[in-house]
Design a protein around this nucleic acid. Structure first.
Lengths: 216, 216, 216, 216
DNA sequence: CATGAATGAGCTTTCATTCAT
DNA sequence: CATGAATGAAAGCTCATTCAT
């Protein structure tokens, strides 16, 4: 039964809501089954829709993945920025590592590892990942530069590069848990804190840089 | 080359060689197409065999993946150990990060990222990964402890934990290239060197630990 | 033919019709190629569908076989019951043997022989076969008991056991045609009639039971 | 190591022995896995040979099946004949039904049911089955005719036809166990004895033939 | 909008058979 | 004789996607 005439335009609110519902179901599936392992029908089941409906909102499974990547990475960036406002850079990075699991909504591997792995084969995903990485790096290097200006961070560090390295450290921290799930997470977090702190700290006035000798 | 007369036993050399050939083809496929994306027929093509033959040597695609994981991770551990003999721990770790791409034989994502991602969903793979991680951690923490004994490494660090964190840093360094392939790799390597050196260095006699203030 | 307006539910009639169409194609295939020899793609061809579609309706080839068994055995039971209403037990059994071929829709072996053979290796099929056998035995033994009450059937026979034996005779009659297809079917039918009649007949008042001597 | 010159002819004893070993393994496989379900590699495993070797003795899996059929059916015929010498026809037939399971060497369905089912699709097998059936029928009808001459068997029965019917009854008796494995076998055997006895018995002098009325 | 029926390519795996040694 | 490596054609089944309603 058609509602005649009146309004053919889609209600954009409802539309967006439906889209989000699908994306949420898809995120659960991607996290649970992997980027390739997740099936469209599984996503439909998780989102409570039908494939026909799903293809009204996304033109392909790949497109869903792209949207998921946007959402997940955007959320990570935002969370990081929020943390940075209320705390310092080290703590913000750490918090990212800390809440990794909770954020993806299930006990499996963080979605970010899947995306890092898949990006090498999926140019569209790589693009999204790179854009968001750049954005995150921009924000982080800004903070680093401010720290340098305040004398809290080693001014000899290239802030831009250091930001990338720190993002890598956070990624690596996610790998640690996969490599040994039995590890005491809080102690790892503490050590990461030390690692980052020492990396960023300005050199002690009278101490030689790089005291660890290159040869044994 | 025949050995003595009535030799009826299967030539175990030939057997092992065939197995290796399949594994090498499979490794290329897994690296190129991903752990899930790689197809058995693709592996057959790459290894120059037929599916029937392949299933003489491996009982399933999963078994191939398991064997690949063993080989790749074992190689990484060995390479790391070799480096450690001829150089210091920092350089050894760095070299691991540095040669990551070359080692996997193609331009894609390092296989290790795929394994880290997949391990969360594949208990058998997780097992292999964890065993090798533990082995690597054992070796690295031995080196760290020796460095501590010699006064070259901060004795307050928990060598076992620190080893895991450093392995994580190496994993993370692989992620960096994925996040921005345009990055100057040598400069990243330099910064990683700094990061690790500062992490491990014993504190300067008169400098306070953790000089980077926790609050801004 | 639409029902009222907003009818969104799947048309269960159409669903059942499709299912039946697949089952009919499958039955032809199973009868033609055997329970193992029948292939899913062959069934698809026969039913005019695609494998993907087929797996919407049945979760496995085995499930199709199970459904076929249900249908075929149910039909046999019903046909037998119908015959029994309009005629006597002997004729009903005979008719079952008689129409065996026509019922399965092609010139090959009666499906029932395949099922009897396969049931020994397929517990699910065995279950179905046993349930239907029990039902048929129940109906047949009821008829036998009524015949005993009327004095038309030897009251010393255990009706339940005799029912099983008679079902066996019908199965055996199907084997006869396989063992010699050139046999004159109508004469076999006549002899079967004699066999069953003599088995069930009450003993003649003055004749000794079991006149055929056990030893020669 | 070749034995030079001397004798190129195969030792026919060894040859036959090897052949028999393969056939025995194959029989176990066919009985366990079904005529289609049995695999050549399974047969090799069971017979302790290699596929290459097996194909020296039989040109195809089908040829093995043919040979098995010969062996199994011949054995059945011989056993029946042997029984008939030391006992009467009824007992001989019964014994065939009785020992069905033991004869095929495992707890599954009697091989004969598989052959009856498969013969409809396998002309070569059908040929073997028919030849052996005819042979058995010949022997049985001879016995029946002798019984008729002695006045122990109803002379009005067509011995040839009756033989076929009795063979069918034996086949059917195998089906009974499949249809309800929980059945008390000895009581079924007893009833079968009654069935056959009454079928063959000469009519009592004063009793009307076919006392069971055709209408209820 | 929304459904789920329908498609067909492709997946992993098995199997009868052949071949080199 | 005897082995098992090797083949390639299916097999059963899944899945992203499209279509009719």
């Amino acid at each position: 039964m058609h509602t005649v005439g009146a309004m053919r335009m889609v209600d954009p609110v409802r539309h967006e809501e439906r889209r989000r519902k699908i994306l949420e179901g898809a995120k659960r599936c991607f996290a649970r089954d992997g980027l390739r392992g997740a099936s469209v029908s599984g996503i439909c089941a998780e989102a409570g829709t039908s494939p026909g409906h799903l293809y009204h909102y996304f033109k392909s499974k790949e497109a869903i993945l792209g949207a998921i990547a946007q959402v997940v990475l955007h959320a990570a960036t935002e969370q990081f920025s929020r943390m940075m406002e209320s705390s310092d850079a080290v703590a913000a990075l750490i918090s990212n590592a800390q809440h990794a699991k909770a954020r993806d909504g299930n006990g499996g591997t963080p979605l970010v590892l899947d995306m890092l792995a898949e990006a090498g084969r999926n140019p569209a995903l790589a693009r999204v990942l790179q854009d968001h990485s750049r954005e995150m790096q921009r924000r982080l290097s800004d903070v680093l530069r401010k720290g340098q200006a305040r004398g809290q961070i080693d001014p000899s560090l290239d802030a831009g590069m250091a930001a990338f390295v720190l993002i890598g450290v956070v990624d690596g921290s996610k790998a640690i848990t996969v490599r040994d799930p039995s590890l005491d997470r809080t102690r790892i977090i503490e050590l990461l804190h030390t690692l980052i702190s020492r990396f960023l700290a300005p050199p002690a006035p009278d101490a030689a840089e790089n005291r660890y000798p290159a040869r044994k």
